[in-house]
Design a protein around this nucleic acid. Sequence first.
DNA 1: GTCTATATGAAGATAGAC
DNA 2: GTCTATCTTCATATAGAC
Lengths: 195, 195
Amino acid sequence: MARTAGSHSDITGPRVRTAALSLFARHGYAAVSMRQIAREVGVQAGALYNYTPDKQSLLFDLMQTHMTDLMAARTDEPTGGTALERLEAFTRFHIRFHSARPDEVFIAYMELRNLTPENFAVIEGLRRQYEDALESILQDGQTEGSLAVPDTKVATLAVIAMLTGVNTWFREGGRLSLGEVEQVYWDMVRKAVAA
Amino acid sequence: MARTAGSHSDITGPRVRTAALSLFARHGYAAVSMRQIAREVGVQAGALYNYTPDKQSLLFDLMQTHMTDLMAARTDEPTGGTALERLEAFTRFHIRFHSARPDEVFIAYMELRNLTPENFAVIEGLRRQYEDALESILQDGQTEGSLAVPDTKVATLAVIAMLTGVNTWFREGGRLSLGEVEQVYWDMVRKAVAA
DNA sequence: GTCTATATGAAGATAGAC
DNA sequence: GTCTATCTTCATATAGAC
């Protein structure tokens, strides 16, 4: 399909998403206007509507892409091993994946209430799937006898909350390297759920 | 000082704050208009400016009050004992205090980026003070030999993130009572930082 | 695909009457 | 203290020219 003269859809489209991602993360979805996004991209506000039907779809697409990327990356990880080995892999994967995408993670947590009910249900379903992966590991570990937690569902949420907290303070080039951070958190997770 | 006929300052003031708290928590600061707050209170928008100089001050007052309430409540708690005893007291206090104020806690975490730089610095200072209380306990425990963490500062942030996560799922009348939740989290915290 | 221009509505905040 | 009315700015989204 030949492109119209002056067309830049294959470059402008990604730029719209990148600008929206950065601005939503910094100022919040509700506080960012389509005009601000357009200015960042270098087009007029009306041109954005060639790439998204509306502002809500822009937010939803960012969040959905982030969550499906997360699920896909996890599926690509090596599987198998003992529950303890799988828990270590999950812990390190979670920290690595999330610390590499601070804007996406921030939006995924902060902007849930700005989704329409239908869009919220989709994102919530993906989040639940991810939690279930960890819950299965904790469950298996207790069956094996290598792990022991007072409540499997609560422990799942507690571990994820602890690990995602890395994003509130970790910065590349700080006191600790990412590898050291992984090790510190893995030490605490391991002890917290050990039999 | 005699009140003007028709004055309701002693009742309207708190109602403005209550309405703002609830609306900010539900929809976010940027998404809530002064007109919405006024409607909830039952006055016209202009009347709100008898109680706050602007919308920003309303947000800042809510956050500052929450943080000073937190510091004051912690000061009222019994002190002393071993590091392990103090850690248990901190854990249970944190869960009890935060689960009783879901709206305040939500705003305190989600609306930091909507504060002016000056206001942000104030809230950030109070948050830091609170973190320091936990860090001291972990430090003392390691001096005593009862606790051991791979990194004291990171462990402080990890424990707080884990505990504050309670607010994302706990609801009164659910599967677990608040006392049971306290016990579940205390079990995990204790193991995570034990020597 | 992008532009200019615009329709339509709502935002924060203030002025002055009661 | 509260009201109505208003100033001024900005919002999302669309229409039609190029």
